[in-house]
Design a protein around this nucleic acid. Sequence first.
DNA 1: TTTAAGATCGAACGATCGTGCTATTATTGG
DNA 2: CCAATAATAGCACGATCGTTCGATCTTAAA
Lengths: 202, 202
Amino acid sequence: MARSISKGEATREAILEAGLSLAREVGLSALTIGELAERVGMSKSGLFAHFGAKEELQLGVLRAAQQRFDDEVARQAFREPRGLARMRALFGRWLSWTAAQPQGGCVILSAAGEFDDRPGVIRDHLAQQQRGWLQGLARLVGQAIEAGELPADTDEAQFAFELFGLILSSHHHVRLLSDVGFLQAAHAGLERLIGNPPRRPG
Amino acid sequence: MARSISKGEATREAILEAGLSLAREVGLSALTIGELAERVGMSKSGLFAHFGAKEELQLGVLRAAQQRFDDEVARQAFREPRGLARMRALFGRWLSWTAAQPQGGCVILSAAGEFDDRPGVIRDHLAQQQRGWLQGLARLVGQAIEAGELPADTDEAQFAFELFGLILSSHHHVRLLSDVGFLQAAHAGLERLIGNPPRRPG
DNA sequence: TTTAAGATCGAACGATCGTGCTATTATTGG
DNA sequence: CCAATAATAGCACGATCGTTCGATCTTAAA
């Protein structure tokens, strides 16, 4: 049996796994070491020793969430060919991902709301993550342009901004109003965006 | 001097005022009675006596935020004539309102993210508030249709959903990335929405 | 001005927070 | 299998949490 991973790293991953679902329920800022220790079945101090500071634990959870997203949404969507196909795949997977989490939706989106006015390492991490997402979306738009599926003067940044708004609105309404019908509204919004994309100012 | 308001109600309002700005900074769920008491310069127990439970304090803050929004955004915008003028006025005021708060953005939007998966009175209140907003937006769309400024088969609910997404995206990016340029992107999104509105399915 | 009602305070409660220590138990490379 | 090292537990700390209670002080009506 290949044991390439040490015991410590294994528990660390288990902690982050549990921390991810706890953060989904109560928010990243309300994540508590005591409660988390109880869930993974170990002592507060034993858990704490893996991170040295609560902020480090929160960053770990954030990184775990991002990796999860990359694996289950981004990477899967990138199996589609460049252009609208890939964009639609990413959009659809993203939407069902935020809606399908058993409780609590997307940790990263929630955390952005909690930390957007509390300067510090976590906010910096979230801001960088957000810039990355916007750029990634804009790149998808650029590839659709190259494929001739969108007009050459499509405003990539504006397109990404509006696309993100559809995701936010869907996440917001699905979560708060428990009505998955808003997923369909987001899809309709994407099609309208594709059919009548924003143009770069002449 | 007209003293129509009792001493108790006056302090209660002062508490909610301070609670509003504290909630903007740390979030509604992280609002703390001790910290709030220190800010208004009274004892924890004295403050607590006004509400009887923390949840009641949070509800009070939420109601105060809504009233603030009604006074400074909705009511002002309703001085414009029905139709696109009113819609643009509301949209613009709403955007600058979420962006102009000294710290913390919109309490209600942030709270929605924090409580969207914690059943209880607060979530119920937020959900109802949200439904009200969506309906109000849809009504604005309906009035623009009546005024002949939008096609008769415009999908009012879909329009409201997308419009809300623009506001969310703007709030999200302005707050997290501290870049007010996203306000302009939201305005551009609204114009595209008006110029090419979603239609009701055939 | 007296008095009943309302507003505020101080102290304390059990609980939990994040974080150090020290000891003890598990794991692992030689 | 043994020794070095890593992982975990136990306990304690000061701080703060929401809440209760009884005492005190302030207001408003008679």
